[in-house]
Design a protein around this nucleic acid. Structure first.
Lengths: 158, 158
DNA sequence: CACAATTTAATTGTGATCAATTATATATCG
DNA sequence: CGATATATAATTGATCACAATTAAATTGTG
């Protein structure tokens, strides 16, 4: 029996559709998320930002002075991820990390002038991404609703 | 890629809604993917696998002897990710990495007996995840279709 | 056949994610 | 007041994702 025949026999004998990669919602979601981060890379190149850094900047453009804990709540990330990321953005002169006056445990994150200015360049990114996705708005909205639901359901149990 | 906010009467009426985190489909997808990997962690703990390692094993249970390139095509990952990951699975005695006889460039990945046995324990994981998601099948299917579409659209122009 | 182009993996370096732990500041309570 | 508990960030260690590069084997072409 050839190796090919052996493989085919094994494949046929082992059909549990739930364990096949092609049938897994989670794998589709995981691959799509990776693809999205890859797709953002060239667009964010000119801003010298990674996708998670771009997310942090988006929050800061709206909530300048926010602290690490609140930022983590908005982005669903913890200080283990955010602290080094914020230090990288600080070293790029986009923000400063200031100890809270009232409570010295907290770090408040303030945009520099350079960080504020970057917003103008970022304004065009969402529409570029919309075009790249090649999906109609209603499908994107359905997708967003599904992602938000599964996120809520997975997180609420802890 | 955002949801246009119908009424923007909140305090930030002057903000650009496209740049708000709450309106971004990509952020929802990114957060959901992170949440999924977190949700798998306790379930895969007893198998001593991470989520990407679990994905590799799923492919191997179906295509034992597959090479790194073909594995990467199935999982949408490259050798920079797979090589160290496969070495970790090899050190756990779940597989062996064999040079191709006919073509010595390729590495063929073969399950060990231990790696084959692990499948029995993994069989129950998909259903556990289904329960955790708390979503009806039709919504999961819709979600999967959307993810597959956006993946294809983003990758095709690569 | 020789040699350039291509293919396949591995390697290197940067950054992100997260669990677990640590350090410090603040709050609570006996 | 002082001891304990809680809250906030930072740190550490493991893993993953990926661009860029390197190494080696194979293929293609003159």
């Amino acid at each position: 029996m050839t190796k090919e025949q052996a493989n085919r026999t094994q494949q046929e004998a082992s059909e549990n559709p739930d364990l096949m990669i092609e049938n897994q919602v989670c794998f589709s979601l995981y691959s799509a998320a990776n693809a999205i981060i890859r797709a953002y890379r060239p667009m964010l190149k000119s801003l010298d930002l990674t996708y998670p850094q771009y997310l942090v900047m988006i929050v800061l453009w709206q909530y300048d002075g926010i602290n690490v804990k609140a930022l983590g709540n908005k982005l669903h990330l913890d200080s283990g991820t955010l602290t080094p990321l914020l230090k990288r953005l600080e070293s790029k002169q986009l923000l400063s990390r200031v100890r809270g006056e009232k409570d010295e445990r907290v770090r408040e994150i303030y945009l520099t002038e350079q960080g504020q200015k970057l917003k103008a360049q970022a304004e065009k990114v969402p529409n570029q991404m919309l075009c790249k996705s090649k999906l109609p708005i209603d499908e994107l909205l359905t997708l967003k609703t599904g992602c938000d639901k599964i996120y809520e359901n997975l997180e609420e149990g802890e």
